[in-house]
């Protein structure tokens, strides 16, 4: 029983790391209905910028602030050069644009800051803690607390600020929002900047665990099943989806894996996502699309 509990808790905590990545997608999807294929590249770019600034001798806080500024400037640049010319185009056009954008950002990141692996020390010890007989990771607890903090901040941003209300209006009906004077370009700039900052938070936590390198951009593969399960439009859904994926894949690896050769975590999350697609196509907390035909 202790082993089961430990696996379950460990899985849930690992799931929050997936949620952090998924949140960036949700934000952009909510504002524009576009699945941002470049989120992984943004995550890589943010983490690489941070470690590169640290390598130049900048203290942690200053490197963090400068990286936030860089991500915000990047968001403005993306809005001006990629999104604005494509306003009123179909969603698939915007999706393809983000696909191209991902290659540009990945190339820029490695071209400007190098392709070598960098160590990232956040000062959080990745050592075991014991709750009775149950072992948990201190690092995972910090990641879970970070995810909780991020969700709280986003909830306040969406529900208690004028920008948040504008953002929700754009998400509900872009044309109606435009007709009442909401500045779509400004909203997109803000949303992409916040998604970039979320990428930075996720990039720092994942980078501290595996090193800052190109494969950081691949952690988004974990976010897709999370989004399918939680729903593409729900911040709470990204958290719940992450918890489900984390717990399910860990339990499956330990209890089902030995019977079918093991190494099942990556595809098991997708199998779970397919099951959810059959039962709830919009995800647990997603908004079902209703159209008059």
């Amino acid at each position: 029983m202790t082993f089961f509990l430990e696996t379950l808790i460990g899985g849930l905590l690992a799931g929050t790391m997936y949620s952090l990545v998924a949140l960036g997608f949700v934000l952009i999807y909510k504002a524009s209905g576009v699945f941002n294929f470049a989120q992984g590249a943004m995550l890589l770019f943010a983490a690489l910028t941070f470690v590169s600034l640290q390598e130049q001798g900048l203290p942690f806080a200053l490197a963090l602030i400068l990286t936030v500024v860089v991500m915000a400037l990047g968001a403005i640049l993306i809005e001006r050069t990629v999104l604005r010319p494509l306003v009123n185009r179909s969603q698939i056009t915007l999706f393809m644009a983000t696909l191209g954008l991902s290659f540009v950002i990945e190339g820029l990141a490695q071209g400007l800051m190098g392709a070598q692996v960098r160590a990232l020390d956040l000062g959080i010890e990745d050592v075991p803690l014991f709750w009775g007989d149950v072992m948990v990771s201190q690092f995972d607890l910090v990641a879970a607390a970070t995810a909780a903090l991020v969700v709280t901040v986003l909830a306040l941003l969406f529900n208690r600020t004028r920008i948040g209300v504008s953002l929700r209006a754009v998400a509900d009906d872009t044309r109606a929002a435009l007709s009442i004077g909401i500045n779509l370009n400004r909203i997109w700039q803000i949303v992409w900047a916040v998604a970039g900052i979320l990428g930075l938070v996720a990039g720092l936590l994942w980078g501290a665990r595996q090193g800052v390198q190109f494969s950081l951009s691949l952690v988004v593969l974990k976010a897709l099943p999370v989004l399918i399960i939680g729903g593409f439009t729900s911040i709470g859904g990204a958290i719940v989806g992450g918890l489900i994926v984390g717990a399910a894949e860990n339990l499956a690896e330990v209890y089902i894996g030995p019977y079918i050769g093991g190494g099942i975590t990556p595809w098991f999350a997708y199998v779970l996502a397919i099951v959810f697609l059959y039962i709830r196509p919009a995800g647990l907390f997603g908004e079902p699309a209703i159209e008059r035909v």
Binding site: T7, A14, M17, Q210, L218, V219, G257, T265, P266
Partner: peptide, 9 residues
């Protein structure tokens, strides 16, 4: 399994 960026299990 590849890429192996989560190995708690």
């Amino acid at each position: 399994a590849d890429p192996g960026n989560e190995q708690s299990a």
